[in-house]
Design a protein around this nucleic acid. Structure first.
Lengths: 191, 191
DNA sequence: ACCATTTTAGAATAATCGTTTTATAAAGGT
DNA sequence: ACCTTTATAAAACGATTATTCTAAAATGGT
């Protein structure tokens, strides 16, 4: 009963992901989102509480997407092949023309401007990613894919740093040439 | 002649560097800077034109500082030792507790929010850095410090990406353990 | 047809933004 | 002492911010 809502909740959050990813939390106003979605301001606040509430939902939607696609590569193949596919996927996206980085990692540069809740989502996601990498590397070493003297934890942190690098470096223009050569170079640490 | 100014221009720009580095262009208001420096709003606009004018000055001051210290390491020693010192310097700073990244590279995540002029300073700085790395690597190869089959351009881009990664990853807390092991791991690509 | 319920459209609020203006204060030159 | 010059303090500007409020509209149940 009651007047039926004229908006689609999922669409709102998807649009929020796009906007927050492009411009960052601080630079996206509720007005921007209302304009982009056609949703009403009052409904917006009833549905998400406040701007941070919508941002947290956007972070979680984006996280879920990354986990079910990219991170899944590391779970399906917890070995060197999985790591290769994972990194290639990151590099490929970051090579795109209108690349806007990663909604989650972008906000590492704006930690002062977001809620504690949002900060924790970011921290947990990145720790989880590093744990997946380490797990795949441990398994790879157990299977003899990499030398026994290699340290999975250090390698995992190395690849995690590199992913952060791809995401930030990907914001440059004129990066296409030789961006995938960076991937090839990085993989040499496994020899 | 005329009333003497009560502010120190250089101090204003230094303060602007700190604030813009911590929170980013969009999130720092002229009011914040006026408050932090004690400078007058009118004098601020007479001196720098507008907010972007101050930001550009801040970028250039920060760039000059990086060039005369960190980048100079690559010029003084255009070889593997120079690269080692350069990267160690980046890692050491990024390991710090209240690390706020790099004023210049931070704003790669906020390209939509800054002027074309600022964007170009950022692009030019990062290209210059990569060129210095490549130059050092070419020289290192000529001197037999790295194998002849290595590609200086690819390696330079690899290290540039890694630096972007250190700067972004450095925003995490709980990173101290094993952050320098990432550096050791990365250097293995030169073997 | 009316009522309760929920959403809508859109105005209203108070704060803050970048920027400009107005009036005063402090100096040197004559 | 007065004039010119420049910087100051502080108010004023219009735009935008996040958020809330008011009133009308659209549904299902009775």
């Amino acid at each position: 009963m009651g007047r039926p809502r004229s908006y689609n909740r999922a669409e709102i959050v998807e649009k929020a992901v796009i906007l927050f990813r492009q411009n960052g939390y601080k630079a996206v106003s509720i007005g921007n989102i209302v304009e982009a979605t056609g949703m009403n301001t009052a409904s917006m606040y009833k549905e998400f509480g406040d701007k941070n509430g919508l941002f947290v939902e956007a972070l979680n939607l984006y996280r879920g997407y990354l986990e079910s696609t990219r991170a899944q590569l590391l779970i399906d193949q917890p070995n060197i092949s999985g790591i290769e596919q994972f990194l290639k996927s990151v590099v490929e996206e970051a090579s795109g023309d209108a690349y806007h980085g990663c909604l989650i990692m972008n906000h590492l540069t704006q930690k002062n401007l977001i809620s504690h809740e949002a900060e924790e989502i970011i921290g947990a996601f990145c720790e989880g990613l590093e744990a997946l990498l380490e797990s795949a590397l441990k398994n790879a070493r157990a299977q003899g894919e990499i030398p026994a003297e290699k340290d999975p934890a250090s390698l995992a942190k190395f690849f995690a740093c590199l992913v952060h690098g791809f995401i930030l470096y990907g914001r440059h223009e004129n990066k296409k040439n030789g961006f995938s050569a960076v991937y090839e170079t990085a993989m040499e640490v496994l020899h």
